[in-house]
Structures are given as structure tokens and as C-alpha cells.
């Protein structure tokens, strides 16, 4: 009980100091805020290391237990070890490290991005028959206008289409996006205040 109270007190005090540091321009408050934020950065780096250990443990366990897809886990662990050894021995900006980054990581991530385009088209089609409402029709219709208005068409020069696309992206889209952002911002403040009040505790004893 004492431990929990202490944890809540430390969290609320730290949160209040950082919050006040943003609003009130007191040099002492601002420097304390900077110290706390530097601590947070160091802790996040340590957490990253713990996360990597977790990744190794989870996949090593998968291989030992011969779970489905354990050969992928083996590929992951070998790749992780090779990259780590290269990075530690020759440095993260060395030619070897850059080669791994440019010839393995970037092509894989780019191909996943290409896959994303296919996934989105299939999702849009599924969306229309899963929820055949006026809303889904507007969604698909707008998507088509934006796509047709963006691509260059050598056979058909329809200037009104690109003007319509411009109007959609400048007027209803901006209006809607601002409305959604309005809700997101209010939700963000409310969540932050709940943490400051100790009502939301992502930490436990």
C-alpha cells in the first residue's frame, strides 16, 4: 500500500513539474523538466535493450518447442546476431552495416509497402460488400475521384476531375480531418489528466 502511494505520488509530482515547465516560463522549472525528459530518454534506451532480449527469448523458445513457423524464428535470430556482430565490430555507419541496410532491410520494407497497396485495394472492395451502405458508397466514390484526379491520363484530359479532387482535398477532407483531430486532442488531454490524477496507472506495484 505504501509502495503504491509512493509510486502515485512520484508520478503525479513528475507529471506536474513537466506540465508546469511547458506553461510557466520559470528557468528552474524548465531545467528540471529537461532533466526529467533526459532520464526518460535513457530509460527508453534501456527498455529497447530489454525488448530485444524479450524478442530473442520468445523466438528461441519457439525453436526449442518446435512450434509452427519456428524456421522463421531461426532466420530472425541468425539475422539479428549477424547484424549485431557487424554493427558492434565495424560500427553502425560502416560499409558492411550500410550494405545490410540498403540491400536487405530497405528492399524487404519496400516490398511490404507494395503489398500494402494490394491489401488496401482488396480491403476497399471487401468494405463495399461487407457494409453496403450509403457511407461505403461515398467512401469508394471519393477514393475513385481522388485516384483518377491524381494520375496523369494521356488519352483523356479531364480538367474538371483534377479540380474536383482539389476541392475535395481542400474543403470536405480538411474540415473532416480537423473535426477528428479536435476529438483526438480532447481525448489526449483527458487521458493525460487521468494519469496525472492517478486514475489511470500504467505502472503497478
Amino acid at each position: 500500500m505504501v509502495k503504491r502511494t509512493l509510486l502515485i505520488a512520484v508520478t503525479i509530482t513528475t507529471g506536474l513539474v513537466i506540465l508546469m515547465g511547458y506553461f510557466i516560463n520559470l528557468p528552474a522549472l524548465v531545467s528540471v523538466r529537461k532533466i526529467f525528459l533526459n532520464w526518460a530518454i535513457i530509460l527508453a534506451a534501456v527498455a529497447l535493450l530489454i525488448g530485444l532480449i524479450n524478442l530473442i527469448v520468445v523466438h528461441a523458445r519457439k525453436i526449442i518447442n518446435k512450434e509452427p513457423g519456428s524456421h522463421y524464428s531461426l532466420v530472425l535470430l541468425v539475422s539479428l546476431m549477424v547484424t549485431a556482430v557487424v554493427g558492434i565490430v565495424s560500427g553502425p555507419t560502416s560499409k558492411m552495416s550500410q550494405w545490410i541496410f540498403n540491400n536487405i532491410q530497405i528492399p524487404i520494407e519496400t516490398s511490404l509497402m507494395a503489398l500494402l497497396a494490394v491489401v488496401l485495394i482488396s480491403a476497399a472492395i471487401r468494405f463495399t460488400y461487407r457494409r453496403p451502405t450509403s457511407f461505403s458508397l461515398i467512401f469508394i466514390f471519393t477514393t475513385l475521384i481522388i485516384m483518377l484526379g491524381t494520375v496523369s491520363n494521356p488519352w483523356l484530359n479531364v480538367s474538371w476531375l483534377s479540380e474536383l479532387r482539389l476541392w475535395i482535398t481542400r474543403v470536405p477532407v480538411v474540415g473532416g480531418a480537423r473535426g477528428i483531430l479536435f476529438g483526438v486532442v480532447l481525448g489526449t488531454i483527458a487521458t493525460g489528466l487521468r494519469v496525472l490524477m492517478g486514475a489511470d496507472r500504467p505502472y503497478e506495484d
Binding site: 480491403a123 471487401r126 483526438v184 487521458t191 487521468r194
Partner: peptide
């Protein structure tokens, strides 16, 4: 925007923050 098309139960805007 992507989740509206891909997920069967998307949460829009502040709905996410009302989860609690």
C-alpha cells in the same frame, strides 16, 4: 482512414479515448 476500410470495428477520433 485505412482502418475504416480494413477493420470490421474501427474507432474514429475520440472514440478511441472513450474506451475506458
Amino acid at each position: 482512414a485505412i482502418l475504416v476500410a480494413t477493420a470490421n470495428e474501427p474507432l474514429i477520433g475520440e472514440e478511441l479515448y472513450a474506451a475506458g
